[in-house]
Design a protein around this nucleic acid. Structure first.
Lengths: 238, 238
DNA sequence: CACCCCCTTGACTGATCGTTCAATTGCCTG
DNA sequence: CAGGCAATTGAACGATCAGTCAAGGGGGTG
C-alpha cells in the first residue's frame, strides 16, 4: 500500500551518513541511473497514486521517467500491463516498506496493528490528505474493467491482511477464545480503507482518528483482561 | 449514495399497474419525455457510477441522454460542473431513496442501521460487485483536483452520517452512558465504505458480511443489556 | 571483424478528448 | 404579429489520448 511519506524531490543519492534516516525508507531513486524499466515503474506508480490511473497520460509517464514511448512499449505492451507491473511492485514492496518498519518499532503484536494504522494516517497527513492508499484508489477506479489488475489488487489486500492476521494469531492467548481473528484482520483493513477515504473527502485527520479510536475500543473489548500490555480505551491522538 | 438496485434496461414507461413495485423506487426514468437537463443528470450519474468520472466521455453522456453538446453546455459549463450537479442530485436523493425505505422497514433505530448496510450489500451483490458506492468512488477519484466536487462529496457523507447519528441518538438509552455515538456514526460509514471497497476488489460478499458481523458485535458490546431488541452477536448472512 | 539481439529513438497514426459557437427553433409575452 | 430569450442543433476546433514502427545504437559472443 502507500509508502508512509514518499515523494522526495531532492535526490537522495548521496545519503549523508549523519542524518536520522527518517524512519521512512528511501525508495524514490529516479536519478537517471536506474534501468529504464524501473524508472518507468516508479514514475507510473507515483503518478497513478497522485492523479489516478485514467487521469495519468502515457506522455506524462514518459516525461517523468525520461524515456521514449518505444522503450516503454518494449517492456509493457500497454497501459494496463504497466498498471499490473505497478501492482506487482506494490506486492513486492509490502513487507520491506510497510510491514518491516512497523515490526521494528514494537514487539507487541497488538500494538503493531495500531502503529501500522497510525503510519498510514501520518503519511496521509504529511500529504495534506490528498492521496490515500494507492491500492484502495485503484480498487475503486479500475477493478471492474481490468480483471488482471483486479486480481493483483486482491493479492495486495490479501498480503496486507495476512500480516495483520499473523500479528493477531501471535496475540491469540490475549483474546477471548471465541474471537474471530480472521474476520478481525479483514475488518482492520476495512476500517483503514474507509477511514482513509473519509479523511480524503473531508481533508481532515478526524475521520481516521475516530476510526482508530473506535477500533481500539473494539479490540480492547475482545481482549480478556485489561492487561497492562494494551492500554485502556483512551483516545489515540499521538 | 448508491441506489440499491438501479439500472433498468427495459423502459418503465408504461408501468403495468399490477406489478409489485419492487421495493426499489423507480428512479431511472430516462424515457425521452424528461426535460433535457434531467436526462443529462441521470445519464451522467449512471455512467459516472458504472465507469468512473475520467473513464466517462462527454460523447457517451450525450448519446445516452440523447442530447447535443450545445444543450449540455447550455446547462453545465463543463464536465466538472456536471459532476457537481450529479453530486447535488445525490444529496437530494439521499433521504427519499436511501433513508426513507430503511425507516419504512423497521422502527427499531439500531436495526435500521443494519438494514441500511445490508441494503448496500444486497444492491452491490445484485450488480455482481461491480459498482459500489458512487460517492465513495468519486471521493477517491476526483477529491483532490476539484475542490467544489470534494465539498459536495463531504456534504453527502455528512448527510449519511447525520441520518445514522439520528438513529443512534434515538437509541441512546440503550447504550452505555460513555459511548461516543457521534464517533460511532462516522465509524459506521467508515466500515461500510471499506467493506464495499474490499467486496469490489475481491468480487465477493464475504468482506462486507464480515464487516457487518464485526460491526454488530461491536455495537452489541456497547449496548447495556443483551436486550431482546438486538439479537446477540450471531452472524448476519440474510 | 561479423553477427545477433536487446534496447532505444522519435516521428507519426487515427481516435477520442472536452469544448466552442453561429445559426435556428419554439415558446412566451407584449 | 413582433420581439425576445431560453433551448437546441451539429459541425468543427485544437489538444491530447494510447499506441505503432522502421531505423539505429551498443555490447557481447563467435
Amino acid at each position: 500500500m502507500p509508502q508512509p511519506i514518499p515523494t522526495n524531490t531532492t535526490s537522495p543519492t548521496h545519503t549523508t551518513p549523519g542524518q536520522p534516516a527518517a524512519a521512512t525508507l528511501p525508495l524514490h531513486p529516479d536519478p537517471a541511473s536506474l534501468p529504464s524499466k524501473e524508472r518507468i515503474l516508479h514514475a507510473a506508480r507515483r503518478l497513478f497514486h497522485e492523479q489516478g490511473f485514467h487521469a495519468t497520460g502515457m506522455s506524462t509517464i514518459l516525461r517523468e521517467a525520461d524515456v521514449n514511448s518505444g522503450t516503454l512499449y518494449h517492456f509493457f505492451p500497454g497501459k494496463s500491463a504497466l498498471l499490473v507491473g505497478v501492482l506487482q511492485l506494490y506486492t513486492a514492496l509490502l513487507r520491506p516498506i510497510i510491514i518491516d518498519p512497523v515490526e521494528a518499532r514494537s514487539a507487541d503484536p497488538v500494538e503493531r496493528i495500531f502503529i501500522l494504522l497510525e503510519n498510514y494516517r501520518d503519511g496521509m497527513a504529511a500529504q495534506d490528505f490528498r492521496m490515500g492508499c494507492p491500492i484502495g484508489n485503484l480498487a475503486l477506479e479500475v477493478a471492474d474493467d481490468d480483471p488482471q489488475a483486479r486480481e493483483w489488487i486482491a493479492r495486495n489486500f490479501d498480503g496486507w491482511t495476512a500480516a495483520v492476521r499473523e500479528w493477531l494469531e501471535q496475540a491469540r492467548p490475549r483474546f477471548k477464545p471465541d474471537a474471530d481473528l480472521d474476520g478481525l484482520a479483514n475488518f482492520i483493513l476495512t476500517v483503514m480503507e474507509g477511514g482513509l477515504m473519509q479523511a480524503r473527502a473531508l481533508k481532515s485527520r478526524a475521520p481516521i482518528d475516530h476510526a482508530i479510536d473506535q477500533l481500539r475500543a473494539y479490540v480492547n473489548l475482545l481482549i480478556i483482561a485489561p492487561a497492562s500490555h494494551a492500554p485502556p480505551p483512551n483516545p489515540t491522538h499521538t
